[in-house]
Amino acid sequence: MSGAAAGARTLACRLLAHRTVLLIALFAAALAAAWAAGSGHGAALVARTALLALAAASLSFLIGQAGLVSFGHAAPLGIGAYCVLILGEYEVRNILVVLPAAFAAGAAFAAITGLVALRTRGIYFIMITLAFAQMMFYVAASLSAFGGDDGMAIAGRSTFFGDRILRTDTQIAVWAVALLAAGLVLLERISASRFGLMLRTGRENEAKLEALGLDPFRHRLIALALASGIAGVAGAMLANQVDYVSPSLMNWHISGELIVMVVLGGAARISGAVIGAIVVVALDEALAPFTAHWKLGLGLVIVAAVLLRGADIGALIGRPAKAPDHG
């Protein structure tokens, strides 16, 4: 009997990996179709979706695995974008420098703010991450050398040792899909590892984990830095795609939209965020031409999704602080 259960388990694991493979194949097919049709808009849409999905997947890692509902994930996204802008102004455009720099900057922001934010739990964590992101928003808006409030165009897209590898929408989309695939594999791998298991245990039962000898703080800090680094990479690619960087990328709306993607697709699995991203971008594309208030419709979709899948509400509302120990 235990053999059968174990068999079912490995099969379930395979299917899970399968879903990720399936989603990447879907992106590749959409990209191929856009390329065959010669549709620049189509390729741009694929690229945008893949990059938002990458950012959402990194947030799903935080929410679903670590139980950390960050309401400030737009900050590392924007920081990654500003890396492209600022480095570009100094003639640094090599993608092998720009993307690692975006990762490092996003991760560093999270590591520093995390030292404070991770002292809080639940709703307080949501509020403090929002506050830090808003601070970054105003910092970016005050960078008058880099466009201030309005932002500014990047000096040029990232290159590979001078080779213009991101010239067309299709090229960007290929990079975006490849980065999404790499990001998903990395995040799923880590989720399944001992590190990921400790994160989930900390989410489920922090007091027990401590009683077992592990303070989850460092695990959470590393998870936060990793997820924010990945969001930084996504932001850097988004900047390349639209050739423009502005503080609006760090706006709390963006943080909220990323949470919506995670909740829509379900936080139990990393790949859920990808589905959520596809749905949000598709709704945006389908409804935006008709009404500027399309997000009202999105709101209804979220309400429906949450009602149909109550489990994720717990993750969103967060858990109360540690239970009092006496009583």
């Binding site: 399944a192 590892s193 001992r194 590190f195 298991l197 400790m198 245990t201 984990l209 592990l214």
Partner: peptide
């Protein structure tokens, strides 16, 4: 398994599948 790992058996390892 969680208890064994948390007690110090590689809680930061990211490579292989834990379970």
């Amino acid at each position: 398994m969680v208890a064994i790992i948390a007690a110090g058996d590689g809680p930061f390892r990211m490579g292989r599948r834990a379970l």
